[in-house]
Structures are given as C-alpha cells and as structure tokens.
Design a protein around this nucleic acid. Sequence first.
DNA 1: AGCCAATTGATGACATGTCAACCAGATGGC
DNA 2: GCCATCTGGTTGACATGTCATCAATTGGCT
Lengths: 157, 157
Amino acid sequence: MEQPRWLDDQEQRAWRGYRRMRRLLDLELARELARDAGLSEPDYDVLSDLSETPDQRLRLSELADRMLWSRSRLSHHLTRMQQRGLVTREECATDGRGAVIALTPEGRRAIEAAAPGHVAAVRRHLIDLLTPDEIAALDALTHRVVDHLTGVDRAPR
Amino acid sequence: MEQPRWLDDQEQRAWRGYRRMRRLLDLELARELARDAGLSEPDYDVLSDLSETPDQRLRLSELADRMLWSRSRLSHHLTRMQQRGLVTREECATDGRGAVIALTPEGRRAIEAAAPGHVAAVRRHLIDLLTPDEIAALDALTHRVVDHLTGVDRAPR
DNA sequence: AGCCAATTGATGACATGTCAACCAGATGGC
DNA sequence: GCCATCTGGTTGACATGTCATCAATTGGCT
C-alpha cells in the first residue's frame, strides 16, 4: 500500500458504471421475476441449475460449487424451497452422508413457467442493448477476470 | 411470452460470465476489505459517498438515492455504523423531519485507511486485467444499460 | 481390522436486507 | 388558520446470508 495508484477518469467511470448497472439490473430482474413467476433470483438459479442436469438431480455440494454458494447457504435455502414443494432431498446411494437434491414436478413446472419471461427480461434490459462487439467484449473480459479470481485461490499468495 | 427468443451461445457465455464475475469479484473484494480494514462493502460505500461531499455530510434521502438504497435499509445500516462511531445523525436546520448524516473523525480515518487497499484490489482483480478498449467498452455499455433502466422507471410501461 | 483426519451436510446464533406500518413535521387548498 | 395529504425517516417483523460448530461418514494409513 505504498503510493495508491488511483483510478483515472476512464477507469473510474467504468467501475462506477459497472456497480450501478449491477445494482439496477439486479433490482429490476428480481422485481419482474417475483411479480411474474413468484420466484426470487436465488430460487431461479437453483431451479435452473437443477433442471440443466441430465437427471434433474445433484449432490448438494456439487450444486453449491456450481452456484458458488456456501453449503450452508444452500442447505438453508433448500429447506425453504423444500417447504414450498419445489425440490426434495433424497439419500445418496454411494455416500451415507450425502444429500441428493432433486427437482419435483412442481419445481419443473415453476422453472419452465419462469424461464421465458426471465430470458426476455435479460434481453430487454441488457443483451439487446449491446452491440455484438460489446457482447463479445463482455464475454472475453468477464471470463478473464473469473479465471484470474479462481486462479488466485490456488496460488499461495 | 409468445415464443421465447433464447440466448445464443455467445450471449449465453457473456451473461454467465458476467454473473460469475459478479459473484467472485464481490466475494474477493469483500473478503480483502474485511480482512484489511474491518469494513464491509456497504460500510465502505457509505463512508466513501459521505467523504466525497464537500461538507462530509448528506441528508439521509440524498445518500440513499445516490447509493440506490432504500431509506429503510440505509437507516438500519446507519444505526449500526453509528454504534461503531463511524457516522452521526444531526438535525436538519431546514426540515424538522430531516436527518443529516455526517462522517465522524473516526469514520474519516476508517475510509482513508481503507481506500488505498481497496482501490488496489479493484485494480488487481479487475481494472488491470482489462485492455483500454475493454475499459472503454465497459464504460459505454454499463452506462447505456443504466440509462435504460432509469428511463424505464419513468416510462408508463 | 482399527484408528484418525478430513469431508458432508445440518443447525443455531447472529448480521444484514426487505416490506409494511407508523409518526412527526411539512405543504397546499380553502 | 385549519385540515387533508404528502414526505422523510424510523421501526418491528420477517426473509435471507454468514459463520462457527456438530454429528455422521468416509477414506487413508498402519
């Protein structure tokens, strides 16, 4: 922390823009999702990830890793979703400790009902506002940052 | 929601990359901030916005608007920060209902101690990983989305 | 086989965020 | 000047997220 290298104007604008977009986009997507489908974004993410697996079911840890959630958070959230009948917990055949999370028919119905509207909202408020170049840039840049951040964990630092 | 126009591969990658970056970057910045300065990101944001005003003080609503927070959230958070001695609430001279939030010397010390490290982290994990073109693209694109989202509120829809 | 460290997932205590209800002070019409 | 209404901010109840801890298993090692 010798001499701070502050952000220049351009960098500052990009950083602030990012944070502002982040917040507003989140609010709007969450609002529409709740209004149109009765789901929160976390609900949607869980259902979405589950529905993408071949068997509609995943080990809790596997799901948590994909979502970048702590097991604790996921466990808590699942008990809530379970009470609403969206998912179930099953025993794991190969590991006595394990919990296998499965989509219920109701959960499947919920995600199928929610998805088109949600995708449309993502388009309306983000994707369709960008040029192809910008989408490509976003793809490249975000993945570079992600790679860096996941690399950091392994590195000794 | 007639026929959903799904995201194509490129769009999908950009969208997922964005969400992943969002999450990882947040975790890492929050982690370093807590470790190095004993502040949460919300703490930092409040202190930062306050410290940027000429007088180190702002009306609660004004602050809430800048931060895109609800008044309620800000009020709750301020009582916590107040208990830690980082900010104070003062009466407003021109409006008997009003609350003016001011940085304490301690709050000022906290933000000044935290800022260099935080900026460095933002550089290390984001800004310095991007090309100038990408930073410019990020600036342009985020502001376009922000403008769209803030315009939406006014529009009848 | 038997032991022990590591892993899985659940749980309780607590921090944080949201929502609706509320109160006091401001405002505007009459 | 008075009342209805609006606005700024606070509050309490509740939803959600984090953290530390715990019990049950597992798996490596001898």
